[in-house]
């Protein structure tokens, strides 16, 4: 009686305590894997931006920033476009915010980084060296989507090579 009762109790406890499918893949509920797998992707790939922004997209993919995600600077795609509809705006930093956005990656610190990896600058030194006013924003010389586009065009106009 007591053994049978225990078995029955165990079966009932298992039915109540263990979720469906528990143990079929491991000691967990298999549905949890699927639930995590279908989580919405909020930060999109650049391909999802290009259909609506072809000119900027083309410029971006030809420039030095081509490896960057659009959303590194422009907030979250998932808050902007969903189910083929624009559902919200996207921020575009300008002025001091833009400079902060650029300097987040390009600020020269005491860390030793291979210059082949990224160009690092010290704000005032960079402007002094190039004889540019100290209140200039980055995008007055650099196209943010293709940073050296205008620089190269200006050099070509005055007949200076890239290295000059």
């Amino acid at each position: 009686m007591s053994i049978l009762g225990l078995i029955l109790l165990g079966i009932v406890a298992r039915l109540v305590l263990l979720p469906e499918g528990y143990g079929s893949e491991g000691l967990y509920r298999p549905g949890a894997v699927q639930e995590e797998a279908v989580r919405a992707v909020r930060v999109q790939e650049n391909d999802s931006c290009r259909p609506c922004h072809p000119l900027i997209g083309k410029l971006h993919e030809q420039g030095e920033h081509k490896a960057l995600l659009c959303e590194n600077c422009h907030a979250v795609g998932g808050d902007h476009f969903l189910n083929d509809m624009v559902i919200g705006g996207m921020s575009s930093p300008c002025g001091e915010a833009l400079d902060g956005s650029c300097m987040r990656c390009h600020r020269q610190m005491d860390v030793a980084v291979d210059p082949e990896i990224i160009k690092l600058i010290k704000g005032p030194d960079h402007l002094d060296k190039l004889r540019v006013r100290s209140d200039h924003d980055c995008d007055q010389c650099h196209h943010v989507h293709a940073p050296l586009k205008w620089v190269r065009e200006a050099r070509a106009m005055v007949g200076v090579s890239d290295g000059g």
């Binding site: 992707v41 909020r42 930060v43 995600l69 959303e71 590194n72 907030a75 979250v76 987040r104 990656c105 610190m109 860390v111 980084v113 990896i117 990224i118 690092l120």
Partner: peptide
């Protein structure tokens, strides 16, 4: 380079 872009992206996602 300590830019923290990875952390921002993770926060957004």
């Amino acid at each position: 380079i300590g830019c923290g872009t990875c952390c921002v992206a993770d926060r957004n996602e």
